[in-house]
Design a protein around this nucleic acid. Structure first.
Lengths: 201, 201
DNA sequence: TCAGCAAAGATTGTCGACAATTCGGGAATG
DNA sequence: CATTCCCGAATTGTCGACAATCTTTGCTGA
């Protein structure tokens, strides 16, 4: 519900109402809520209730830095192992993204993009790292309901993916790490650019 | 209790007994447990109960890789900002560690070491990154009750800290990142070495 | 008109009980 | 003697209720 935007950041959750809506008891709901808090999606203020986490610009920038560090690490691991199945899968996903971009299907592009990144994490074979990355991405989701995709930047992004999968396939640990890190940081810059045109929160 | 070793990895927690021991109700305990699960300290098997997480050698190696990626990221951020207060603090902590090492007070050394690393994370000014790092360290705690400190390796570790704080103080982002990453990975190697002498789990 | 206070209402924190599921042991069978 | 089935005990999952706390509303007085 949070990631789908059915409850908005900053909104306060009424436990009784929500438990009724989900047809579960308050105890069960509260258990779930405690888990989500640790995951960073909710903020709990004692005796005041739970809020959907507000992600400020500063928070979002932090999450980008965190993502960059994790993505670099995962890309290095993926390049070290360089398992064939993931090479194929990454190539496949990037092809799909290229198609989607050419056809103007930005929603598909966005979904494939997420999956491409997730696959790099999987290819790294480090579950805790993948989990931390997921949490960061989820936090970023809360920042703005999907930051706009600028068509002019898609080509660049696709080329970055291309370099990354080439480096991984070539067992080039250092290159994979650098490309991966730069890719996220460029995404960070793009986010900042699109933000300049709107209200800085 | 988990970090203090009062409940051992793999052990199954009896909710009723534990709630009585802590003088709280089962509901309250369960809420806390759900939070700890997300933090990675507990594993919950539906209808079978909660177990203290078992950390295998593979898991520990993963956590070291994760720590390395995060520590590198934080060191780079710390070097970028290079706030004077943290330079002083890091210097102070490393001096204390040197003293403790010379006097053979290994428990103190260990505590200062943890604090030194935590301070680097704080100096980076990235809260989500610090949180992820903390979780990884906690997971590592579960691996072996404090991996033995080999006196011969203390000097090396201290010199690494020295290089790190020098690089941070000098605003040298790249050097700080490299030193930080190598420091954790050397710790990983040390862990593997001490492991060879015992039973590989 | 507005600040301060008090009572009423709403919401969260905690609890114990009941239902559902799993675990352990003993009897029956091949 | 080993194996399977079944029953009772133990443990987890879910629930609704009560207590504690906070928020809102209305009143009083300056």
């Amino acid at each position: 519900m949070i990631l789908r935007g059915e409850v908005l950041p900053g909104e306060r959750l009424n436990e009784l109402a929500l438990s009724r809506r989900l047809s579960i008891s308050r105890s069960t709901l509260r258990e779930a809520v405690r888990g989500l808090q640790q995951g960073g999606l909710l903020e709990i203020i004692p005796n005041r209730g739970v809020l959907v986490r507000q992600v400020s610009v500063k928070d979002a920038l932090d999450l980008y830095d965190l993502r960059a560090a994790l993505f670099r690490g995962a890309a290095r691991l993926a390049a070290r192992r360089a398992l064939p199945e993931y090479k194929i899968r990454l190539k496949h996903l990037n092809d799909r993204m290229t198609e989607a971009a050419a056809a103007g299907r930005f929603t598909d592009y966005y979904a494939y993009n997420l999956e491409f990144h997730a696959t790099v994490l999987t290819a790294g074979g480090n579950a805790p790292m993948a989990l931390a990355y997921d949490q960061a991405v989820k936090g970023l989701h809360l920042f703005r309901r999907r930051s706009l995709v600028h068509p002019a930047q898609l080509d660049l992004s696709l080329r970055e993916h291309e370099s990354l999968l080439t480096a991984i396939a070539a067992h080039d640990v250092a290159a994979a790490g650098e490309v991966a890190e730069r890719h996220i940081m460029l995404g960070r810059d793009r986010m900042l650019d699109t933000l300049d045109g709107s209200i800085p929160a």
